[in-house]
């Protein structure tokens, strides 16, 4: 599939911010399932945003403003060609020991309720890890309702699981936390998804999980959709959880209340449904 993504993130500050610092993880890398044909990240301010790489191997752009800033727009546009790999990730350089992805983070802690849930799926019978991960995918997808109104970016897996509701970020956190509890290295992926119903305009990026199966490698699990990622998925960044894979992570001095608006269009070019975005 040939996918075009146009992604605008605009920040408006109540009063000019004295200093803004951001790390952007908005640029995908090519792998055996996706080829990045064209990609471009632009800022509407006069600051260099040098390109780098973080500990997880993600492409980063980092910038620091030095003049008062009242608004800021990050524009991302690009074209990625994808192929279905049945969720299996390959052709990626892994800079970290997989065991680091067994670590609990603040967003992916467990409580008794979640432990009971995960242990219940694992059950007594010994199954191979891949089957177990698929069972966990099906159970999480079935038990936790996709709902954009109940949670926010800071909601933890425990909180979302207690509500049995959340967005793709929350579902992914729950999945990762359970997998790690069962001794399986698991990580967070942020990316984009072509909606097959033809909806090009989207409210936010997508997220799913990856878990390690010995002998195979990292395999994707899209909990929000209950499937493995396919040619409809564009993998952008990975990390322990949302925080370490976040598309934009920033800090600022001054500026008062921040107003954030996002415009995102993800289109299958073959369907010729691309709407131009201004």
């Amino acid at each position: 599939m040939r996918i075009r993504i146009v992604y605008d993130t605009r920040y408006a500050y109540e009063t000019p911010a004295r200093a803004v610092a951001q790390v952007l993880r908005l640029t995908p890398r090519s792998n055996d399932g996706q080829y990045v044909a064209h990609w471009c990240v632009e800022l509407d301010i006069d600051e260099a945003a040098p390109c780098g790489e973080d500990a997880f191997g993600n492409v980063t752009h980092t910038f620091f403003t030095t003049k008062p800033l009242s608004h800021l727009t990050i524009t991302v546009s690009g074209v990625v060609e994808t192929a279905d790999t049945h969720g299996l990730l390959s052709g990626v350089i892994e800079p970290l020991a997989p065991d680091v992805f067994l670590r609990e983070t603040a967003l992916t802690t467990m409580d008794d309720d979640m432990r009971a849930f995960a242990d219940g799926i694992a059950g007594a019978a010994s199954r191979d890890r891949l089957t177990l991960l698929h069972d966990l995918l099906a159970a999480t997808h079935a038990d936790v309702t996709f709902d954009t109104a109940s949670t926010n970016v800071a909601t933890s897996a425990v909180e979302a699981f207690a509500l049995r509701r959340g967005v793709c970020q929350d579902l992914t956190h729950i999945y990762i936390a359970c997998a790690r509890h069962l001794g399986i290295p698991a990580r967070y992926v942020s990316g984009h998804l072509v909606k097959l119903d033809g909806d090009v305009e989207q409210q936010a990026g997508h997220a799913w999980a990856e878990a390690l199966v010995p002998g195979l490698g990292w395999i994707g699990f899209d909990v929000a959709n209950g499937v493995c990622p396919s040619e409809t998925h564009v993998r952008v960044a990975t990390g322990f959880d949302y925080l370490s894979a976040a598309p934009v992570r920033g800090s600022r001095i001054g500026g008062g209340t921040e107003h954030l608006s996002v415009k995102l269009a993800v289109a299958d070019l073959a369907q010729r449904q691309m709407q131009t975005s201004d």
Binding site: E53, D54, A55, F56, P95, L96, A97, D99, V100, L102, R103
Partner: peptide, 17 residues
């Protein structure tokens, strides 16, 4: 054991670079 290192909350992956 690997777990004492890699699952240690003080292990900072940023330092592997």
């Amino acid at each position: 054991p690997a777990e004492l290192v890699y699952q240690n909350s003080q292990y900072r992956v940023e330092m592997t670079r």
